[in-house]
Design a protein around this nucleic acid. Structure first.
Lengths: 275, 275
DNA sequence: TTGAAAGCGTTACCAC
DNA sequence: GTGGTAACGCTTTCAA
């Protein structure tokens, strides 16, 4: 069987496992000589404390949960894999680990169970597909929570600078000398797209270019082929001012999800377009 | 604090926590009436067994480790995120979870620690960047192991059907009527590319087309721009039979890594090429 | 500083 | 079937 704290104590010649525990956890109250003996014995035996036993008593797991909607991780365009990877590398510096779980429709209980089992100390929820009700519930339960690519008032979140990004992209095209720059997106009611739309318009304005509603086209909400559809609509352009263009007000800007249903693809579908 | 098995026992009116444990784990040896009482009490209290306590005694964590080289997960072209996601969804059906960890140079101890801490019961190692020595060591340690996109004799592994895929791709082009089909790859000494090369040649042969060495070009091993380089070389074609073409023998086919250093990009760089 | 003992929340193993 | 008890491996507390 694997080596336990008993074995270390015995080998070090100290009668008590408590002493070993103290030494290995860097607590004081142990004579230097004793400490050395213990350290050496542990090294020789290749002792690694049992995770379950330790966390049973300390009530800490140094583990975080990472949740993504199953729909996204399967898409090669989703960037949540990169987020997870980077988060893990940062967490490791603090001796934290990540439990990964996909979020499937109807699995609302899973994250809660992870918490109640005392497996994880906090959660990162990636994507805007995690039900808002669940997020609110977790938040109320006092669970340390961070959202990625999503936003709920009062919850920590990491989001994309949509406005700034669109501003930069548009400015770049303008600097290259283009003056007729279109704007494609899934649908303007989505907060993330409306933010980009704002950045697009601000850039036009700052560079003294007119905003032309006929150069704006929406595709279909939460549809993979949406960018194509939008482009098609722009190319098949009817008379300016038709319903699909321009500055219509957002129905529920406060409640719209950040970055729509296809966040990983957003940067491909929502871009400056040059004619 | 959270609700423990004691609370359930008390509420159910049974004097023993052991009984509760039995019921909740579906063991027999409990009268139906008692069982009902326990079940109801557990439901009412929202009881979830503590993970650490449970695994301390059972010695099981129902948790698997998923390791990928840090270099890969950061690349949007790597498909390991999809592998992880799919693996997790399958594992969940069996009530298993995944601990995710990136593998960093010099972190050889990490997977071993995870094992010794009794945190994970087995490991999935994705990519060909995990040191072979580590794999062999784990294997000898009796750790349940599965490699993805990598191969070591005697270790379970999931690999791409390189030969078959290239055969299909080439056949497809032939069926479309093309007869002058090129083959680009990073370098032929790599097992995965040489397998694809074999499939390519087999398809040509099966369809009665000649193999023309001047249509084969290598790029640079383990270089992101490799496909471009190979294409350039093919286009700048010198006289047939120059060193970069054809059927030279593989130095160490048995020891070559599967699918080179850029597995996620392989399908983009190594393809049938039509002129 | 060191020694002894209690306890974390579960499951497993006994007798009854 | 049912009930009690021991044990898992560790940390913590409290006397000595």
């Amino acid at each position: 069987m694997s080596v336990t704290i008993r074995d270390v104590a015995k080998r070090a010649g100290v009668p008590l496992r408590a002493t070993v525990s103290k030494v290995l956890n860097g607590r004081l109250g142990v004579r230097k000589a004793t400490r050395e003996k213990v350290l050496q014995a542990a090294r020789e035996l290749g002792y690694i404390p049992d995770f379950s036993a330790r966390s049973l008593v300390t009530k800490r797991t140094r583990t975080l949960g990472f949740l993504v909607h199953a729909r996204h991780t399967l898409s090669p365009h989703a960037f949540y894999g990169e987020v997870l990877s980077a988060a893990e590398q940062e967490a490791r510096k603090h001796q934290y680990h990540f439990l990964f779980a996909t979020f499937n429709q109807g699995d609302e209980a899973v994250p809660l169970t992870l918490l109640q089992e005392q497996r994880v100390e906090g959660l990162i929820l990636a994507g805007c597909d995690i039900p808002r009700s669940l997020i609110v519930q977790l938040k109320h339960g006092g669970v340390p929570l961070v959202l990625v690519d999503n936003h709920v008032p009062g919850v920590h979140s990491v989001v994309i600078d949509n406005e700034g990004g669109a501003y930069e992209a548009t400015s770049h095209l303008i600097r290259l000398g283009y003056t007729k720059i279109g704007f494609l997106c899934e649908w303007l009611d989505d907060l993330s797209f409306s933010e980009r739309f704002a950045g697009y318009k601000r850039a036009l304005h700052d560079h003294g270019l007119p905003f032309r509603p006929e150069l704006v086209a929406e595709g279909e909400p939460r549809t993979p082929g949406s960018g194509h559809i939008a482009a098609q609509r722009l190319l098949d352009q009817g008379p300016p001012g038709s319903g699909r263009c321009g500055q219509r007000p957002h129905r529920n800007p406060g409640h719209a999800n950040l970055s729509g249903g296809w966040p990983g693809r957003a940067h491909r579908h929502c871009r400056g377009w040059v004619r």
